[in-house]
């Protein structure tokens, strides 16, 4: 299929992009890497009148850090995240995850901002954002606002972004020393969206006073922080003692859906396996 006819304009500045977006109203659509948008256009699922290209905007680029945060421009391409030494040092979870995002050709063009704005429930990166307690910097006609990752993902392909807003930057707090992280997903083929996945961050000791953030993806209509399961683990004397209760508690956290890949029971079963394996990995890191 061929896309419906549309106009195309390459924005010169962020301000320009905002103005174009506002003027275009409902007919305007931002394009960054195009890796999710273009397939949707070619399937005629979307019919924007104007594509506003923001892939080249300097204001959206760059990976930087200060004392408290790592800042990732929304226009940062997957390949840049995967190869950045700063990301490697400070956000190992992200580099573990990015390997599972699509294929090299797609990672060369796809952007972090596009990925998060697209909000595919099976995507790896939104889950990482919640696990890492990222904050999204959003710019709109009414100015800037900050949205915590936990409030950003609203549902299937739905985010807190308004149609006239642009995701500019993602800021992630630096993790304290000794933070452990784990990433795993079950996908039928390398590069596919996951049938079920888990991004998990842990601070503290194996026994007592531990903070753990297991975030599941590919299981519901958005990534989910499994609070009940986390609580079971945190309250157990030893993390591992809390596993069974935590697995049971997943029933409170997750509403797995049926789809072509798996039914909801299978998904719940996979989530439990992921939690068990993830915990084993975190504990092994503590010993290692």
């Amino acid at each position: 299929m061929k896309a419906y006819a549309f106009d195309y304009v390459r924005a010169t500045t962020l301000e320009d992009a905002l103005a174009l977006l506002e003027r275009a109203g409902d007919g305007g659509k931002l394009i960054a890497g195009g890796q999710s948008l273009v397939p949707a256009l070619n399937l005629r699922l979307l019919a924007p009148q104007l594509l506003i290209d923001i892939a080249h905007l300097a204001e959206l680029r760059g990976i930087s850090s200060d004392d408290t945060h790592i800042h990732l421009g929304a226009g940062t391409r997957h390949v840049e995240l995967a190869t950045s030494p700063l990301v490697g040092q400070t956000l190992p979870l992200l580099q573990m995850a990015i390997r599972h995002v699509a294929h090299a050709a797609i990672r060369n063009r796809g952007t972090l901002g596009g990925n998060l704005a697209h909000a595919d429930p099976a995507s790896e990166l939104p889950a990482c954002m919640i696990a890492l307690e990222a904050v999204m910097l959003v710019l709109g006609p009414k100015g800037e606002r900050q949205v915590p990752a936990g409030e950003f993902f609203k549902g299937l392909y739905e985010t807190a972004l308004e149609a006239d807003e642009i995701l500019v930057r993602i800021s992630i707090p630096r993790s304290p020393a000794g933070t452990r992280c784990h990433f795993n997903e079950l996908a039928r083929r390398a590069g596919d969206y996951a049938m079920a996945g888990l991004a998990m961050v842990m601070q503290g000791q194996d026994s007592g006073d531990v903070q753990i953030r297991p975030v599941f993806f590919g299981i519901g209509d958005r990534p989910v922080l499994a609070r009940h399961a986390a609580l079971c683990l945190q309250q157990a004397e030893n993390l591992i003692d809390g596993l069974e209760a935590a697995q049971q508690a997943l029933a409170l956290d997750l509403q797995p859906q049926d789809d072509l890949q798996a039914d909801s029971d299978t998904r719940m079963q996979l989530a439990k396996v992921l939690l068990k394996r993830g915990l084993a990995d975190l504990l092994a890191q503590g010993r290692g």
């Binding site: 399937l43 039928r188 083929r189 390398a190 590069g191 596919d192 072509l260």
Partner: peptide, 15 residues
């Protein structure tokens, strides 16, 4: 229900 290359899985090199 799965008439696209995203849903109809062909074998790929990695597997």
């Amino acid at each position: 229900t799965n008439g696209t290359m995203a849903d109809y899985l062909v074998p790929m090199a990695s597997e």
